[in-house]
Amino acid sequence: MKMPSVTIDAGVLAAPPEYGTVDDAHRYVETLLDWRKLLDEPWVAIYMSEGASEALFADGLYPLRDNLKKLFAANGIVEYDVNTVARVVDTLLQLTPSFETYFRIRDVLAEKLSTNPDILRLSAGDKLQSDLARCVILIAILRLHCREPIRDHSLILRHAPKQVVNVRAIIHEIDHDRNDLSALPTHPEVFEGNVLICDDFRGLIECLDESSILVSSTDNVGLETAIRIALYKSRLGRGEDPDWNDVRGLRIGLSFFETVKMSCTDQASSFPAKVLRAIVETLDGENLAAVHALRTGPGGDDPQQMRGADGAMRRDIDYEFHLHYWQCDDGMVELATVVTHNDFTIPG
């Protein structure tokens, strides 16, 4: 699976200023928890600049207990204590792998960097700004030029005014160990690229391309990740406040991944999105006109195929392909196969 990845800007970990509001404090903690959660998730890789701690120290934003203490005291926050929040920040700083090590790219010498919108001015200190600038250019370069594109890679900032930030800079030199950056424009040409940015979990999911994750997946983890993202986005689209972990009704059958991969490989690039939409509609009980029972024979009165108390169902993906699944007696949906039009089989 092509694993989605993110880089957290060190500024995200800095405590809001003492004059911050109650909402600032709560949002800070909630965002920290979101990113902390990503560390344990198998479907996403999370990175941080190796200069993050140094920048925070240099700008006087770490250790953050004093700052947090003032913020919590000023706003009467009793839901969290400073040490516990600081522990989450420490964990992120200590356990998050280094972006530079993973992408084998360390530093860049550049000038006349500009971003649109201007995200650099949002940094809380000079060192943080400098570190962010370095990350922005490096990510933009990687997104545009490396052979293994990291198109989904998002940069997590404290505040993201837009989803895509355009980057312009004159690049003099890059310190890296890669062998796929030969086409890079160098001085006096201007490098132009972009980075995806987000400031919360929802923004991150919106940046992700579930279809490409599905296509690149090699096992059920990738498949389930793609389904989760599609489900999350669908629910967001309906105006809900979705819970990432709320996929309790889903079970993936033994043959399902194989048949999905086969059909996605053979079909047009829009097909994975159609499969995911069909799955999401099945899980959320939508577009019921596209669903009917999968019967034992061709007649409309033929009995439904059953597996004990579980009933077989067929949902149209498009005119040619159909999703077969079990509507289980315990309320679960067990995805069985993706089949062509004339195929009415379903594995038991």
């Binding site: 250790p63 009793v78 204590d81 040490n83 516990t84 522990r87 420490d90 200590q94």
Partner: peptide, 22 residues
């Protein structure tokens, strides 16, 4: 949450973490 967290109350690993990072 621990209200009025006393100095020295299970903050050793916190201090160590900060020292390591520093």
């Amino acid at each position: 949450a621990v209200m009025d967290w006393p100095e020295g109350f299970f903050d050793q690993s916190q201090q160590e973490a900060e020292a390591i990072l520093r």
